[in-house]
């Protein structure tokens, strides 16, 4: 068991100081990249660092960061979810429909979270008890949710949302609520992952299932729980996503699952399971927003946007691999 635990950053205090920094390396690299980007683009066009634009960068991708928290837990436990984009699309539509049809606002906020938990607990059960690989279950769910959503809504836009429902447009101390959600949830989950027994369980399962089982961890139940928690975060992300504007498109946002997975992975969550933190994935989501914004500021043709993203993922992952090799 201890072998599988030592890969987690939580084991860092036992290491020499520079190693401790290196164990959090991905977070520092991302923070450095965000700062470097801000400085470079800020020199080219100071308006990039204007309060409005920075707010927009932090708030714009907050729902991705929130979804990436849950995704990180799933990946750390050694699984994957490629249906999260479709799930968010469905939950956002449910939330919007409740809001416009006169149900209490709190229900419109809460329902997506509850439904997300139920749906993903089902997914988790298929994965844990029937031993179907998570990529297969979620690939199937992707089709079912996406096709089902369009069958039911025909993609009719939801408009006339009540003003007090639009939680993503609320501000506290001048800072938009999605930023609060992102920061508080990230901090809570990071602490919880590091200090709670269940957090360690997730790392243990992802690190070495058999060892975890031998150590007395109830692997199946924990797996279902991880997926259920992931569903709750997808629900929160869906509410933030739905209330950002005054209309909801009621379709599945294109490629959202790829963006969320990419944020987790670039944030340092190892796809092999067992390592990573949610701070990294949140920083990665912010970095993506900063890049998208800076492309416009630097007059880079949007034709090249995807190349830049791909190159960036590749570089971070290669850097991470090099760092891990050094650590060994």
């Amino acid at each position: 068991m201890s072998a599988s635990l030592s890969t987690a950053p939580r084991a860092a205090p036992a290491m020499r100081p520079w190693k401790r920094i290196a164990a959090y390396g991905q977070e520092f690299i991302l923070l450095g990249a965000i700062l470097a980007l801000c400085i470079v683009v800020g020199i080219v066009n100071p308006r990039f660092l204007g309060a409005n634009n920075l707010t927009n960068i932090f708030a714009g991708n907050a729902y991705i960061a929130v979804a990436a928290i849950g995704m990180s837990l799933v990946i750390i436990s050694g699984h994957i979810d490629v249906a999260v984009g479709s799930l968010i699309g469905v939950l956002a539509t449910v939330s919007g429909l409740l809001a416009v049809n006169g149900y209490p606002i709190w229900l419109a906020w809460l329902a997506p979270i509850v439904i997300g938990v139920i749906v993903n607990a089902g997914v988790g059960s298929l994965v844990a008890y029937l031993r179907i690989p998570s990529i297969v279950v979620t690939l199937g769910m992707l089709s079912i949710l996406k096709g089902g959503l369009i069958s039911i809504t025909s993609g009719a836009w939801i408009t006339n949302l009540p003003e007090n429902y639009l939680i993503a447009q609320f501000r506290l101390f001048g800072i938009p609520s999605p930023v609060w959600f992102m920061v508080i949830l990230t901090a809570l989950v990071a602490l919880w992952m590091r200090y709670s027994a269940f957090g360690r369980t997730i790392y243990a399962i992802g690190g070495n299932v058999e060892a975890a089982r031998v150590a007395g961890i109830r692997v199946e139940r924990s797996t279902v729980l991880v997926f259920a928690i992931h569903g709750a975060f997808a629900g929160i992300a869906a509410v933030l996503f739905a209330t950002q504007l005054q209309v909801i498109q009621s379709t599945v946002p294109p490629n959202l699952e790829l963006t969320v997975i990419t944020a987790s992975v670039v944030g340092g969550v190892s796809i092999l399971g067992g390592t990573g933190t949610v701070i990294g994935s949140t920083l990665a989501a912010i970095l993506f927003a900063a890049i998208a914004s800076s492309l416009i500021f630097l007059n880079v043709s949007a034709y090249w946007l995807r190349s830049v993203q791909g190159l960036l993922i590749l570089i971070t992952v290669l850097a991470d691999m090099a760092r891990r090799r050094r650590l060994r």
Partner: peptide, 14 residues
């Protein structure tokens, strides 16, 4: 999964 996720974006971008 990661390597080809990155090149998925990279090749499409190219």
């Amino acid at each position: 999964l990661i390597a080809t996720l990155a090149t998925l974006a990279l090749y499409r971008g190219l």
